[in-house]
């Protein structure tokens, strides 16, 4: 029987604090890229140029239908063969940002499509230009239903950061594996990783929920 060693846990704690910081940075940075890219993908699917719309649509589908791990490998290992040499961190953030950007563009689209057609018609009846109708009427109403989906993917991107360990980004998973190789102890490091993920994911999900309610109240659209 292997016994749980509290001593080892305290000994490893500082390295995990450092790795947690890196994991949060990877998740936050990747999410920041994804939020913006999602808007870009969305906008490109609504421009009056059919070729751009179709190309973007196909690209988003491609990203959503292939594994994130494959995309990380593509950026990191295939990129250099075309002269695109990226550090693990850069490659990882790009891959995860594009991947989640594709998903977020779908979340945004769902939010916009949930706004009733009558809102567009009312906007047109008072002669609002299209851009103003988006900005003042449609997007504010698309936001609350989109927040739940955006929150899910925020937790999702956080839980997917271990995939970056395969290209050598020193986040939590990578740290635990390194420790295991050094000390031949796997129980404590991997348990600690699980505990840290749980301790962050649960409150985050709760906060997202509270934020959605707050936005609805702010917009006077409380259910």
């Amino acid at each position: 029987m292997i016994e749980w060693q509290w001593g080892l846990v305290w000994e490893l704690a500082p390295r995990f604090v450092d790795a947690t910081g890196k994991t949060l940075f990877a998740a936050g940075g990747g999410y920041g890229i994804a939020v913006v890219l999602g808007l870009v993908f969305l906008a490109m699917q609504r421009v009056p140029l059919p070729a751009v719309r179709v190309a973007t649509r196909e690209f988003v589908e491609l990203i959503r239908s292939t594994p994130l791990l494959l995309q990380i490998f593509f950026v990191y290992y295939v990129g250099p063969q075309f002269g695109l040499i990226l550090a693990p961190w850069t490659a990882g953030l790009i891959a995860i940002g594009v991947h989640y950007g594709a998903y977020l563009s779908e979340v945004y689209r769902g939010g916009i499509e949930s706004v009733p057609k009558g809102q567009w018609e009312a906007a047109r009846a008072i002669n609002l230009p299209t851009v103003t109708a988006y900005r003042r009427i449609v997007l504010p109403q698309a936001l609350p239903p989109a927040i739940a989906g955006m929150g899910n993917y925020l937790v999702g991107i956080f839980k997917d950061t271990p995939m970056l360990s395969v290209i050598g980004v020193a986040e939590l998973m990578h740290t635990a594996t390194t420790i295991g190789a050094e000390s031949y102890r796997y129980l404590e490091p991997y348990t600690m990783v699980g505990a840290i993920f749980l301790a962050i994911s649960l409150p985050a999900a709760f906060c997202v929920n509270a934020f959605e309610k707050w936005v609805r109240r702010k917009l006077g659209m409380a259910k």
């Binding site: 009558g118 809102q119 018609e121 009312a122 009846a125 008072i126 109403q141 006077g220």
Partner: peptide, 13 residues
């Protein structure tokens, strides 16, 4: 031209 609709279509926010 101005218009009023069957379902009002006020801006809820």
């Amino acid at each position: 031209i101005g218009m009023c609709f069957q379902h009002f279509n006020l801006f809820p926010h």
